[in-house]
Amino acid sequence: MNFNDDMANDASGADQHGEENPVEGTVTLADDALYRAFASRQRRRLLAMLRDVGRDGTSVDELATLLCGYDATDASTMGTADDRDRLLAALTHVHLPHLDDVGLVEYDRTAGTVAPRPLDPGVEDLLDRSVAAESARRRPSRRT
C-alpha cells in the first residue's frame, strides 16, 4: 500500500525525496544526536556529497580525496599526501563511525565503502540549508 503510493508518486513525477513520508527509524530534527552529527563541517560535507553520489555510495578513499579537494580549493593551495592521510584517519576513526552510529550513513569498515541512508525530510532540508549557506560563504571570496 505504502509501496503503491510511492509508485503512484513516482509515476506522476511529484515525488523527490519522499517529502510527505518521514522514513521510520531515522534520525530527526528532534534528536540531539543529529545536531552533534551536524556540528562538524566535514560531516556536513560528507553527507551532502554522499547524497549526490546516490545509494551505491563510494569508497572511503574517494571521500578522503574529495575532502582534500575541498580544503585545497578553499585555501587555494596544494593539498599534500599528509593532508589526505590526516583526513583519511579522521574519516575512519571519527566521522564515519559517528555518522554510522547516528544512522545517517552506512559505513562498511571491511569493504571501505560508505553509502547514504534515506534521510528524514526535515534533516534533508537542514542539509540543503547548510550546503547553501556554506557555498554562499565560499563563493564571494573566490576569484571569478
Binding site: 551532502a48 556529497m49 553520489v53 575541498y70 580549493t73
Partner: peptide, 10 residues
C-alpha cells in the same frame, strides 16, 4: 558531486 568542492585536480 554538485554539492562538492570547486573543480580540482588529483
Amino acid at each position: 558531486p554538485p554539492d562538492g568542492p570547486d573543480p580540482f585536480v588529483l
